[in-house]
Computed example of a mutant assay.
Amino acid sequence: MPGAPRQVVLIGYADAELLDIACVADVLDVANRLGAGRPYRVRLATVDGQPFPCQSGLTLTPHARLDQIRGELDTLVVAGGIGHRAAAADQRLLEHVRRLSQRSRRTASVCTGSGVLAAAGLLSGRRATTHWAHATELAARYPAVSVDPVPLFVRHGDTYTSAGVTSGLDLTLAFVEEDHGPTLAREAARALVTYLQRPGNQAQVSMFLSGPPPEHRQVRDLTAYVAEHLAGDLGTPVLARQAGISARQLTRLFDAHLGTTPGKYVRTVRAEHAARMLSGTDLPLTAIARRCGFGSTETLRQAFLDHFDTPPSAYRRVHVRTAYA
């Protein structure tokens, strides 16, 4: 006999991101249909209870006004979207967020919904994340929040924040695993044809996708050289000779155009290339370490821990490309 439903409230507002809402609602719906011992009762609520436009142009009709939400809640989730700044300035909304958070076992945000939680004072003194493109703004606007732009989601006590858009799916799968165990979470992920599940500490954006190639010709040529010679000697003196400049000038160029040192850049490229090999091949760690220019599997492991906060073996278990029937 199922237990009493877990009360979940999703907070929406004008120009919210539809996927921020749908990812949470659909994961919990799938968990219910797969037999969650205590099913989730999900309600969408807004300040006025009226239909509201999402940023995509589609309109959602909420179940209730926020002032109609009473009693204890299991989970409170604030969506993000291009309307998050206006939402964070709405004092009525913030009062409801604070009130409902006090009644909730856990409080969460998806994407830029973190800005609403921060405006409500719920992230002060806490570590949090948000969409990578908005992390700098969040940190500047709310200096009491320790903003980490890297992870897919962050848990600090009973408060959870997730990165951009579909990371809400990863966060909600983590909720299902917390509440019902890994088997149900795995089945939900399979039903949704997604990973089970990308760990919260996985980086949001690979450095290979994070921006255009450097405009400076020498730096651009060197980054191409690094990518093509990962197994070779890529020390700063070698790269400087390759570019025909001094090591000091090389360091200045990397700092100006890549925001890092040559050594750190090379280590990061090697770690990310190793990650691609771990998820896309069945090569042993020794072979991957050698091909990526790491002197040993232990050196590879240390670089992986520094960059992904997880060992290579665990990364491979999560990211191996498995086809589901």
Rank of each mutant, 00 (worst) to 15 (best):
T223C: 08
A191F: 13
T261D: 11
A188E: 08
R276W: 14
M277A: 10
G280L: 13
E178C: 05
L171K: 11
L234D: 03
V205S: 06
Q242Y: 06
A227Y: 03
R186V: 01
T260R: 12
A256R: 15
V226M: 08
E177D: 10
A275G: 00
V176M: 08
D233W: 07
P212T: 15
P213F: 10
L184D: 02
L209S: 11
A227R: 15
S206T: 10
E177S: 01
L234F: 08
P182T: 12
L258E: 09
R241I: 06
A289H: 10
R270T: 03
F208P: 01
G259K: 14
R241H: 10
P213K: 12
L278S: 06
R198M: 06
L239G: 08
L173C: 04
R217C: 07
Q242D: 00
E187G: 02
L239C: 08
V176P: 00
R290N: 03
A271I: 06
P213D: 09
K264W: 12
T261H: 07
A224Y: 06
L192I: 03
Y265P: 05
A275N: 00
A227H: 15
A275L: 08
T194K: 02
V205N: 10
I245D: 04
P199G: 09
Q249W: 07
A247P: 05
G200N: 13
T286N: 02
